[in-house]
Every structure is written in structure tokens, then in C-alpha cells.
Design a protein around this nucleic acid. Structure first.
Lengths: 324, 324
DNA sequence: TAATTATCGGTAACCGGTTACAGATAGTTT
DNA sequence: AAACTATCTGTAACCGGTTACCGATAATTA
């Protein structure tokens, strides 16, 4: 591949001049500019981004650390981030942390060595201190670590309240909740939202809250057990869509018709919800918007521009489909 | 961050020596090595991967160009590729081409500028010539472009025959096929496999083959229309799982019970199939294995090792679940 | 003892960009 | 005509690694 020196020679100018044309910086005479542009075109020259990165200490690359791209919640986020980054001239390195702090740390080290300009991370295990020591911008998405670090999330508690109230409005009187992992903030918030709505009800029992881990199979198991213990249950609010689908399966296995005999509502609004039969009623997060915002905010920070706020909380929306 | 010169100064040696220790190359005395290692530890030094890339013309990074990570077929592939690459010391840049050749080309240009060591691509629009001109290894996955380029796929035709025969064995006598896009090789192969099995049947009509585009909504529409036209149909082989789920929806909307009145089988074995109700019978591709192989083959090529073959065709497996 | 060889470490050029600084030219002002 | 300024272009150092090549020392051999 042609280098800037080849172009300079071809156009009979110096490399500095070529660089000036390339970056539209400093004085370049009209004639000279034309010569250089012709040379660039003739040689099909593309500046070497690595050399540029070395000098600028910026790579036009961001790191994206997610628990697992196979988790159906993340592809839409990843897509939005990549789209936005790409539009703004950045490239995205994908990393799967498996919720493992050590693994995340290893990825971070590699990303730093590659001079990534910033990182978007979804993690609950990483420490605030670790992040601050990186000396590059970091944005958290979906999981919040600290109010100090820019974070993009939705109003989980409100969404949970909406979901639970909706089931009540649908005439459900014994509403259970399958919650997410204890160490994930949004799972706690969703559980809290559910609690706020049902704690005043005289029918509410602590055992109506069961532990899930955001995965389908486990949800099916625990809901099956729940229905055996509490045949009176006629509504379930699952803390995410994946578990909600697991719950639908459990309901069928238990011989219950959805939505006739039991209503089930999820949270997230992932594509999966439209693929299930019946289609899933859910609290929809503006996933694309979240990813887009994360990328925009991160890139603003990279460019040294300041951002309006450090905590972006988006609204959720109830999408009624056929499971309620 | 500390540079190699800082380490050299701290250890009172030259940068060459530090580099030798770092890369275990050339003679370094035991004493000297210890000093250098101590310095590296004390200064918490990590070599700058960008500087290294510049000199080596290798970045320990590979590009992954997929049509769309939101398409549920790709996350597992991406995960496998990332896992494998990461284990072998490579990092993955994610690109979404949207089946758009121009977009893919733009990504390729950017990737080249960043000195990626190789590219894994899933595309049917890109030309063989374009790829050969890149001068870096390229591996195709899921979509085949040319026998010259290393390709990782499954035996689509065989899988399609298996699916169609399976429906016959289940006693289905009027089996339709929803095919994938005309410009995708695997869609044609799957259609061909279906044809081979049904073309001898006296009941077979050309209109039993309908065009889908691998998307769910479209599949629902065309199947609905198909069922109106041909109420006799009692089996459907959809060219991918997403369309199979669309077909299940259509069947329900048409008042048919799955699998009692109509059997539906998909292709791919994506996670979605386990989330649908009824769970989807499908021809499962070893997705993780495919991704893993793609990464391994690519990295072998990058390292200049030679590979056994240029065409890796994996077997598919029929997974019977509840839709047949 | 002298010559040879293995081992070790340093200097400096290189990868391909960017940019501070300085020098040259042309146009304007006094 | 001299001085000054605006515009334009080039030289060379720098980013942080790698490595060819050379010189020095110590160990081995004749």
C-alpha cells in the first residue's frame, strides 16, 4: 500500500503538505492541493490509521464489553452502538465478559493496549475505582455501577409498577414476580417496583416472589414449582422477557391457558417476545435509543465535549400483546 | 503510561534488551532479564499494541462483517468467533453490513486502514475479485462466494432433504416450502434439497414453493396466503427457523393446530426455536462449531500456516421438538 | 598464549503518520 | 525601495515499539 511519502514524491511535495491536505489543516495553495489530491487518487492512497493512532494516542475505536452477545437482550444494543459509532467514524471491538470480573479486566487491559478511545460496558461486577483508573471515558449501559460514571438505563422501578398495575387492571388478583439476580441493580429495582404495588394487598405473600436468573430454563422450573405451591396465582410479572417466556412454558406444562387462566408480562421488549405464541405483553425498553445514546455520550466524552448529565434514564412503554 | 524507554532507563539497560525480554527473542543474560522483569512489574508496563502493529503490520485484530447482529442467527456465530479469537490473542471488530455491498466495502476499507490481520465475512453480494485484492486472509461463513475462498458452511441440501423426508415420515402428504432469498446460495440449496424429495411426488405443485426473505413477518403473510390457496397443505419446511416461527403463527391464525393438523419444521437451530410454543423442530447447524472453525482457519491463514482444505462443510442434525 | 566462538547488550534506523518550526515567496504598506 | 505581513511549503523530530548490525566480554579450543 502506498504511504504518505509515496504520495508526496508522486506529487513532488513534502509529506507535511500531504498531511495538511489530508486533514484540511494549515495553509495549502490551491494548485498544490489539486496536485496532492490527484496523487492520492492516482495511487489510491488511504492513510494508515495505525500510524495515526500512534501519534494521536487515539484509535477511533471503542470497546464494547457485554456479558454475552448470545443473550437476546444485547444484540439490539450492540447494533445501535455499532451503527452510531460507525456513523461518527468509530469502530467497535466486541467483548463477552460472561459476567466475570477477571475476564472483563483482561479485556480492558487489551483494549487499553490498543489505545481504544473509550469503553461501553454492561457489568455489575466491575468496580468504580477500576474504571476511574483507566483514564479513558467509560459509559455504563443497562447496569449501573455508580452515579459518577455516565450511565444509560431505563426507569426500572416505574416499569415494574406499570407491569404489576396492568395485571391488576386486567383483573388479576394473585400476582407473582420472578425476579432477576440479586447482584444486578435493575433486578432489584424491578422487584422493588413490584413490591410497591402489591405490598398493600392483603393477598400478598413473600413467597410470591421467586428467584430467577434471567434465563428461560430456570424460569420454567421455578414457575412450575411456584404454580404447584400456589395454584391460586393468576398473574406473573417476570423481570425480563426471556423468563416470561419460560413462565409461559411452565404455565402450559401446568395445564394453564395463557392468557385465559393466567396472564404473564415480561420486561425488556426484545424481539423474542414477538416470536412467542402467544406474543408477549411486555414493558418495552427503547433499546436502540439506549445504545445510540451510549455511543453518542461516549464519543462526546472522547472528544472532550461535556455532556448534559451523567445519568440518562429513559422511559419504558407498556406494549400489550397476547399474553395478558 | 510507561513506555519501553522508561523501562529501559529504570532497569539501566537499552530498549533493545527490554524488547528482547518482552518477546523472548535473542540472547538476554539471566541477571539482566531479572532486572528488566522487575522494572516491568514496578512500572506496571504494558507494551503499546499500536506501536507494535505499526512495525509488524499486524494488529492482532480481525474484522467480522455480518449482515446484522440483530438477526438471531448471528449472535451465536459471533460469540464463537469472538471466544476463539480471544483465546488465540485476537480481538474482533464487529461490522453490520445490512446485506449492502457498498456498506460492506466501506467497512473493509476501514478495516484495512486499521491493519486488521484478517476478515470473516458473511455476504453474498461481495465479489471474489474484491476479496482477493485485499491481500489479507478472508474466510466466508454461512454464505459461500467462491470455492477459492475458505468457506465454512453446512450441507444445506442434505439438511433440506432430511427435513422434507422427516415430514413425509410423519405422514404428511402435502408439504410446502418457504424458501429464502434468491441471491443467497444456501437458500437455493435448501430449496433444491426440498425439490429432490418432492419432485417425484404426484401431489407436488410448483406453487407449493413460496418466496420468503428469511424474516418472520413476511413468512406469516406468505404462509397465510399459501394456506388460503392450498388448504390441503399439512406440512411446511421453512428455510430458516425465523420463517418457521412465522409459519406457526400463520397456521394458528388460519385456525390450524400445530403439530396436530400441520407440521412445521425449520432450519438453523437458533435459540429462538426453543422459545416458541410449541418448540420448533428444526435442522440444527453446529453454529458454535462453525464460528469456532472460521476463527481458527482465519488465524491459521494469518500465521501463514496452511489449512487442510478450502471448503469446510459441516453436518446438520435433525432436532425433533414439538412442532412436528 | 593466541585465536575462535558463543553470549550479551547497545545504537540507530524503521514502521507511517503529525506537527513545531523555520524559510521562501508574493503582496502590501510606508 | 525597504520593511512588513500573509501565505505557502519543507525539514526533522516525535509517537513507541522492533530489529539489523556491531562491538565487547567470556569461555573454549588449538
Amino acid at each position: 500500500m502506498a504511504s504518505i511519502r509515496d504520495v508526496a514524491k508522486y506529487a513532488s511535495v513534502s509529506v507535511a503538505t500531504v498531511s495538511r491536505v489530508l486533514n484540511d489543516k494549515g495553509y495549502v495553495g490551491a494548485e498544490t492541493r489539486k496536485k496532492v489530491e490527484a496523487a492520492i487518487a492516482d495511487l489510491n492512497y488511504r492513510p494508515n490509521e495505525v500510524a495515526r493512532s500512534l501519534f494521536k494516542k487515539q484509535s477511533k475505536t471503542i470497546g464494547l464489553i457485554l456479558p454475552d452477545i448470545m443473550n437476546p437482550f444485547f444484540p439490539e444494543l450492540a447494533r445501535a452502538i455499532e451503527d452510531t459509532a460507525s456513523k461518527l467514524g468509530y469502530t467497535v471491538i466486541l467483548c463477552n465478559s460472561d459476567e466475570d470480573e477477571e475476564k472483563a479486566q483482561r479485556y480492558i487491559d487489551v483494549l487499553l493496549q490498543k489505545y481504544v478511545d473509550g469503553i461501553i460496558i454492561s457489568s455489575n461486577t466491575i468496580l468504580e475505582k477500576t474504571i476511574r483508573e483507566l483514564n479513558i471515558p467509560v459509559v455504563c449501559i443497562d447496569r449501573e455501577i455508580s452515579k459518577e460514571i455516565p450511565t444509560i438505563v431505563v426507569d426500572n422501578k416505574k416499569g415494574a409498577r406499570m407491569a404489576t398495575r396492568f395485571l391488576k387492571e386486567k383483573g388479576r388478583r394473585k400476582i407473582a414476580h420472578i425476579r432477576g439476580p440479586m447482584d444486578i441493580v435493575n433486578a432489584n429495582e424491578r422487584c422493588e417496583g413490584y413490591r410497591e404495588v402489591v405490598s398493600g394487598e392483603q393477598w400478598f405473600k413473600e413467597s410470591y416472589i421467586v428467584n430467577g436468573n434471567y434465563r428461560m430454563e430456570t424460569a420454567t422450573e421455578v414457575v412450575l414449582e411456584l404454580l404447584r405451591q400456589h395454584p391460586e396465582i393468576d398473574g406473573i410479572f417476570a423481570a425480563n422477557d426471556t423468563m416470561a417466556i419460560g413462565a409461559i412454558k411452565a404455565a402450559y406444562q401446568h395445564g394453564l391457558k395463557v392468557p385465559e387462566e393466567i396472564s404473564i408480562i415480561g420486561f425488556d421488549g426484545i424481539a423474542l417476545g414477538k416470536a412467542s405464541i402467544p406474543e408477549l405483553t411486555t414493558i418495552e425498553q427503547p433499546l436502540y435509543k439506549l445504545g445510540q445514546t451510549a455511543a453518542k455520550v461516549l464519543i462526546k466524552l472522547i472528544k472532550g465535549q461535556d455532556i448534559e448529565k451523567t445519568f440518562y434514564q429513559f422511559n419504558v412503554q407498556l406494549v400489550e400483546r397476547d399474553s395478558t
